[in-house]
Nucleic acid binder design. Structure first.
Lengths: 356, 356
DNA sequence: GCCAGGGGTTGACACGTTTTAATGGCTTTG
DNA sequence: CAAAGCCATTAAAACGTGTCAACCCCTGGC
């Protein structure tokens, strides 16, 4: 049709001429109110008029202006997703679950990544508040939920993501990281390890703190004290940090086994150890956490602790939307999934040593 | 397991009482216009008044309503990010780059994932249009840019992400996939492979089509025809699909080498081959694509073709925001990065075979 | 033939912000 | 001293949609 085929890349008219509800109304020969009704309560408008309006909408290429709707309605159809790190497949998977459910139900997702910075978290939450998001899914940087509390006070629904809470006044979805840490270390102990190292991120991260707590609990159950656990703390939770941890381990005598708070750490650690000729699991056993897709294909397939990642995102979003749309009858829930131990090569046959 | 142990916490007042600009104005003893000035052009307001207003803002916990701003201004400070698949670390990394730049410059990112579905893409783009996003970064599902054209006509800035375009009227940022495919296969040939298999996704995906084209080009340069290339097409681009491809390969005689259009495919393939006792690279060499973080730590470290993923996201976003904010002086650019071959164990020492 | 009733449609206002032209107070200049 | 100019501030008008009360027309009952 009217395609001015070719032409320069300039926009001739700064005014792009937005078609609004009233232009549609004029074309269909009805009032703006009727158009609005067609959009929001089609059943209230006579079939014939509705058809006329719908045709006008198609012809003009009308697209409803969400800003105006939101302004008028006082609430948007957007939710915020605030995670720690997109680079971590764990969170990428969670995000997939979130996006899935949100888009099924007609919500848009605003993505924000704190990168573990308390300050960035605050800035991002401000943006989300400005956008008047209907709700927020958040993996908080630390335990002090002041930011979160602020949001709730403003009437924004909040679901804590991968972060359990004792408080009954909000929803949370999490996986039991203490149990997970315990699973991992108990497994190492059962396989015969005695001298275990823990490679973990900053203890301000709840995930790290909890997994460590679980690890200690397993030791205690085996009659060992916390001195049995060598702790190596790294600043980040990625493969590079894992490599750093490996180098630090190599400076002294190697432990029997290493529990990494995260598969990325474990993969980095594994890479370096193999490089310098350390045998895994013969010299050192390694277990990770998250069971991301790649652990099974690692140089030495990694044992890990599996979490229902995708489900985590889905359930959290469903809870959030329920709270948003049905806030009257909504009962807050604290959902806690149980993690699952996945044993692969990287921790097998320590037993031989123990029995030998 | 879900423990619905939550107590019932109701919201007593449905009206959360939004504080607006005029409430702030009343408290500070000025007019709404002045408050707006404090927010948008602080230099125009007398220091004393400004201080009063700022205090009122703090005391009332005022947060600007982006919907109203957007409505009034006719343009938002949001951009849309439309990718193929969050589950692919390649895109997750791109998204990181995007989020990075966007948040630096005060923009919010709306995330949408098409999952390769043309229909989902359309639906998501509609939502983005409703949100009146300032611009869109998109990895289109296929070449026919009808959806994209529609957006542009509506005045939305668009940058094609990981998708080159010959047209001079829009920006694009991509990596030369033909060159990448050629790099990969030339490498395989140089290492002595003669019977090569290509494992790739649907040819409607530009990435797949281009990498295949590059592969054929490398063969031709070596004096070989397209019959030298066995092609296995899989429906998805993930590890599971790679496993399926491996099983199909195992039905017949194994090739010397396999070029996978994607590291995920390669990892899945590798896993199955190793499981059934095939030696890599001795029996079969494997090369992937993307060089995601995990390939180096794979059972057999995977050769791959590296792309500047994070940079891709950053540059694309910078171009987009430039086009948004400076549309007058904006010159459209078609940025094309060159990929880089990364050789690891999975393709080494085929030479021995060739020489032997 | 009049009134009640109801479905379909309308018009006007409100949502919270930005912007523009106008206002008022003050200082400077001739 | 009057006129002119400047600065800080204000009042009012938009932006596009949703809602609500009012309205119109038509049907059916008495």
């Amino acid at each position: 049709m009217g395609t001015p085929s070719g032409g320069g890349a300039r926009t001739p008219h700064p005014r792009a001429g937005t078609v609004g509800i009233k232009e549609v109304a004029r074309r269909a020969g009805v009032s703006p109110g009727t158009v609005s009704n067609v959009l929001n309560r089609p059943e209230r408008v006579a079939p014939a008029t509705r058809a006329r309006v719908e045709q006008a909408i198609r012809e003009l290429g009308f697209v409803r202006n969400a800003s105006a709707s939101t302004l008028r309605a006082g609430q948007s159809s957007t939710i915020g997703l605030m995670i720690l790190d997109l680079g971590n497949p764990f969170f990428a998977d969670v995000a997939r679950g979130v996006e899935d459910v949100a888009s099924e139900r007609g919500y848009a997702v605003i993505l924000a990544s704190s990168g573990g910075s308390h300050d960035k978290e605050r800035r991002h939450l401000t943006v989300l508040a400005e956008q008047r998001v209907r709700g927020v899914l958040i993996t908080p940087v630390d335990g002090q939920d002041d930011h979160v509390e602020l949001l709730r006070r403003r009437g924004v629904a909040v679901v804590l993501l991968d972060h359990p809470t004792p408080r009954a006044n909000q929803c949370s979805v999490a996986v039991d990281d203490v149990a997970g840490g315990e699973l991992a270390v108990r497994h190492l102990l059962e396989e015969g390890a005695r001298d275990i190292a823990l490679v973990t991120g900053p203890s301000s991260l709840r995930q790290c703190a909890d997994r460590r707590k679980g690890a200690l609990r397993a030791l205690r159950a085996a009659g060992l004290g916390r001195e049995a656990l060598r702790e190596i703390t790294v600043p980040d939770m990625n493969a590079r940090a894992g490599e750093g941890a490996a180098r630090r381990l190599l400076e002294g005598e190697l432990p029997d086994a290493v529990f990494c708070a995260n598969d990325l750490l474990a993969l980095g650690l594994l890479r370096v150890l193999l490089q310098v000729g350390v045998k895994v699991p013969d010299d050192v056993a390694i277990i990770g956490y998250d069971d991301i897709e790649f652990t099974g294909a690692a140089a030495v397939p990694l044992s890990s602790v599996r979490q229902p990642t995708f489900q985590l995102g889905r359930i959290a979003t469903e809870l959030l939307l329920d709270e948003c749309e049905n806030s009257a009858g909504h009962a807050h829930q604290q959902v806690m999934f149980q993690p699952e131990l996945v044993v692969r090569e990287s921790t097998r046959r320590l037993v031989a040593d123990a029995e030998g």
